[in-house]
Design a protein around this nucleic acid. Structure first.
Lengths: 247, 247
DNA sequence: GCGGTTCTGTACGGTTTCGACCGTTCGCGG
DNA sequence: CCGCGAACGGTCGAAACCGTACAGAACCGC
């Protein structure tokens, strides 16, 4: 699928951009596989392409000068990786890598920037996506400051579940602990509790979401705000109003 | 100063935008006083203006549906409040209010958006500012996840100090605890420790920064990355390269 | 089916931070 | 100069979480 039709793509951003914008991007859309742990954006390295995910899941990670890291954002097929080029910088301090393998339409930066220039409606829509990512970042900060591990864990599982097909998440406790910035065996304990509630079913290297409603219950106010903002700004758009400045 | 000259403004963003962009904004710049606790952006309420701070300090706060809050960003005269309109949404979920009184050039949204349209270089520069705010948000999340209270407190004091003139910060322990999302008496204890190091001098309702280097020492890797990104993207700009997409 | 590797379960002691208090001190308005 | 509300200093037990360690279980390649 080197030159996909807009109706064939699954990425939600590509799906909602105006048709003529999609057409001008189309010759540059290159469908590629993304391996587990593959890096899409390296910190402080100019990236030569942006990625509209079709499947799989990416993590955005912040890193401090003394080596501490934590995940601050998720990217699935609702979004794109490398959006900092929309903010006119070829580099970011955040790393983006594949947490769960998948595929994406890769677009080189040059034609991408040219298409933005040519299609303000697309540009504006993508900027709105950037805003929803801002909200996500803010709520990651809030979650880390004010919620306990089990609430953050539930939030994290929900965010994965939102972005992947099926109810199985291929994750190890170790990986989860890195993402949440907590101790590995703490994750093990909390997963047992969630399993006790019959919200999830954990096996080696896998977590199955059994009862999403229960997870949302556990997460409480920790989950939801960025998702609502995404819906408001991206999904609740009819053809006329795409990329307009409006409520 | 209803129609200031560019050389007279102190806001760093207004200072570095191209002259012709400034001129087109100039008739709409209204210098206003900002009272303590005055709100500049209410969550989920369209704001009718953006604010280029000339003095004072604003806080950006994230709030969850069950009422938990924490500060996720700072705005001083290096920045602007209400930048989400650049991302094509008239509302944000974050609140912005004055933590320390001051003044700002207020610009109504309509002429502001028109000026953006007309002056892509200004738009691009401001988008780069948005990126530096993203980094700030990410590092707030990182700080809350991976650093202890004393490191976060030092970071917070440094960020205030960066944005205000003089070495005195008019803050109560109670306010600090709200911003950091910790217990009030915990702040008291940590301030005593910082005072023991002769890094600060605390009096009722006031904290004086005595030894900035010591504070940076305490903050460690918790502080610095967003500030470096701001310098890279906003300050290290010569007249030719303003708003260009480059390293 | 064997050996190595990765992942998970569990334990222990220690640190950080919390929540809820209460008493003291400060400084302003009357 | 007195009274009162706001701000500060400090305490107690409890909860959350950490670092470290180790053993068993599941999986992988050969």
């Amino acid at each position: 699928m080197p030159h996909p039709l807009q109706s064939e793509v699954r990425n939600r951003l590509l799906k909602v951009i105006p048709q003529e914008a999609f057409e001008s991007l189309r010759p540059y859309l290159e469908l590629i596989d993304l391996a587990l742990k593959q890096s899409l954006v390296e910190p402080n390295v100019p990236n030569d392409a942006v990625y509209f995910l079709e499947s799989g899941l990416g993590s955005v990670v912040a890193q401090s000068s003394d080596g501490e890291t934590v995940e601050v954002g998720h990217v699935g097929r609702e979004g794109m990786a490398g959006y900092h080029v929309l903010l006119m910088t070829p580099t970011s301090t955040h790393r983006t890598f594949m947490q769960s393998m998948g595929s994406a339409f890769k677009v080189s930066v040059d034609p991408f920037m040219a298409a933005l220039e040519k299609h303000p409606q697309m540009r504006n829509l993508l900027l709105r996506y950037v805003h929803s990512c801002e909200v996500q970042l803010g709520h990651s900060a809030l979650a880390n400051a004010r919620y306990n591990m089990h609430e953050r864990l539930a939030r994290w599982l929900l965010m994965c579940h939102d972005r992947l097909e099926g109810d199985d998440l291929a994750l190890t406790h170790e990986f989860l602990s890195l993402m949440l910035g907590v101790r590995r065996s703490g994750v093990t304990e909390q997963l047992h509790i969630l399993e006790g509630l019959h919200a999830i079913k954990a096996t080696r290297g896998n977590i199955r979401i059994v009862d999403r409603a229960k997870l949302e219950d556990v997460a409480g106010g920790c989950y939801g705000a960025p998702e609502a903002e995404y819906k408001r700004l991206i999904e609740n758009q009819d053809a006329r109003s795409i990329g307009q400045f409006q409520v």
